[in-house]
Amino acid sequence: MTVDQDRVELRAAHQKILRDVSPAKVAREYAVLLLSVLLFLYLSFAADNFFTAVNLRNVASQSAILGIMASAATLLIVAGNFDLSVGAIFAASGIVTVLVVESSSMPVGVAAGLLTGMVLGLLNGVIVTRFGVNSFIATLASSLVIGGVILVITGGENTDTTNISFITMSARQFLGLDLMTWVFIVWALLLGYVLARSIYGRYMYAAGGSAVAAQLSGVSVTGIRTATFVVSGLGAAIAGILSASQSGSVPVTAGSNLVLISIAAVVVGGTSIWGGDGAVWRTVVGVVFLSLIDNGFNLLDLDPLYGNIVYGSIILVAAAIDAQARRR
């Protein structure tokens, strides 16, 4: 009986909270979701070839690379850090994979690539958490170092492979979707579960919400933050390997354009750049939204020159909504 009373009281409190939320907060919570749906409907009507299995599969596949990196970035940002080295790790992992595939076999190559990403992520994590270097600066520096090492090793040349099983890997089909898309789906579900349901997710929210309070509650802030850097490195490696498999060739600048766009996708989805608040599903929505815009530009034959203007404006609006929602 008391349980019922509590439940009634709880429901009343929920309804009150729902009534009282500020418009900025609602916008931050659900705006991108709504906009994505609207954009989807619009494109379905405006472009003949949008709502076709081929095109939608294409959109999913093209979102995969960005989505894998942005999902990993979500955990890192929630825990209170940034990683600007994911572009360099993307390239490094791709190159290592290709080199090992050429000299050994595909499975060994993929494993080597994944390991590269995790080790580089771990290094970032140790530098940031143990030595207290600001993550922005630390990962900016490490991305320069990694990029430099890549230049030394490759001499600035693309790293290529003709290994058939590797270059067809990412396009392999399962149940109508290619491997890229499947990896994105599984990765996003996994990270979403970790953040929303697991004890580690709670610790990430705590570390990002208030590092001191978390530490005084017995949370190993350095441990959990280091773990998010490893996840970030692993995400970049997975994306880098898939991308290498897609083109069979890794340029030294691979991934550099993905760094800021993946942070942008996180913010557009509604995760707070200040840490302590956010979700992986939001990032997935953000990624889909940005991909739909890309796709729309293609299908409607708009000048891609305007793409950046649209992208930039959307990111600005998302960041402004975030700032407004935070104002009390």
């Binding site: 929210y205 705590a206 919400g209 208030s210 001191v212 309070a213 978390a214 005084l216 302590g276 608040d277």
Partner: peptide
Amino acid sequence: KELGLLLER
């Protein structure tokens, strides 16, 4: 507020 609580959680 500074040392004890995660105010937004």
